[in-house]
Simulated scan of single mutants.
Amino acid sequence: MPHALVLGVSRGSIELKQFFRERSSVVFTFAFPAVLLFLLGSVFDQSAGLGSVGGGQVLTASFAAAGIVSTSFVNLGTAIAVERDDGTLKRLRSLPMPPVSFFLGKIVLVVVASIAELVLLLAIGVLMFDVTLPSGLGSWITMAWLFVLGVTSCSLLGIAASSLARSARSAGAMTTLPYTVLLFISGVYVPLGNVPDWMASIGAVFPVKWLAQGFRAALLPDHMAAQEPVGQWELGRTALILALWCLGGLLLCLTTFRWRSSLTR
């Protein structure tokens, strides 16, 4: 295991170099949630009707979750599908490297990218929408375990989703489409009170809704809990559901992950 860990860290360094060399991919990865936050926050900041809390502040908290899902589920799922299609996974599997080291390398990439995305979104919120960062240790601890559970669950689901794509061409659609739909029905783009009940019920099954609600609990005043569907932050339930998705995502990865493309003969 120590050998596999060292190889995993080394693999993570390679993953980071490859990622940041693709400038167009880097720009899109970080700019997409940031631009959406800037545009939607500017539109709804003055018309939220939430008293001392502006719409931009609410959106910043929700987009903190969206950014994590983007860098983990969307990017990881797409990248692995592309690597499977072009034969990279097949070649890596033939090397004397434990499979766990490959996934550790991906984890290093996702964690670094997710932290950078979160910092960028919070900076936009502070500079543009007067978001106040937490002053108490409890809120920072909440953000920490939300980050860990969110990155873990969404990364595992991204790895599992990569196996659904039959080729690199379809990889983006297999991750971007469900990501975009979930942002709408999970209270990220619009308040859950404006979402039809049946859509909100579907959104409540998946991690995005709970991750966004958790970040709102950490970044918004306590009285804003009244705006949630049940009038509470439900942090205990959030932790439980995200942990269950971590377990479910692991089981999906173990049963669906493929090193070779299904089109390979």
Rank of each mutant, 00 (worst) to 15 (best):
L104S: 03
L104W: 05
L104I: 15
L104Q: 02
G105K: 05
G105W: 03
G105H: 06
G105F: 01
I107D: 00
I107C: 12
I107H: 05
V108G: 02
L109K: 15
V110W: 11
V110E: 13
V110K: 15
V112T: 12
V112Q: 01
S114R: 01
I115W: 08
A116G: 03
L118H: 06
L118D: 06
L118S: 11
L120P: 12
L120T: 11
L121T: 07
L122H: 10
L122W: 02
L122Y: 00
A123E: 03
I124M: 02
I124L: 11
G125F: 12
G125Y: 05
V126K: 04
V126N: 04
V126S: 09
V126D: 07
L127N: 06
F129K: 09
L133Q: 04
P134I: 13
P134N: 07
P134T: 11
S135H: 13
G136K: 09
L137C: 01
G138F: 09
G138C: 01
S139M: 06
S139C: 00
W140C: 05
W140D: 04
W140R: 04
T142S: 12
M143W: 08
A144V: 15
A144Y: 15
W145Q: 08
W145K: 07
L146N: 13
F147M: 06
V148W: 13
V148G: 02
V151F: 04
V151S: 01
V151M: 06
S153V: 14
S153F: 10
S155R: 01
L156E: 05
L156Q: 10
L156P: 00
G158E: 09
G158N: 09
G158K: 00
I159Q: 03
I159G: 02
A160E: 07
A160I: 00
A161D: 00
A161C: 07
S162R: 02
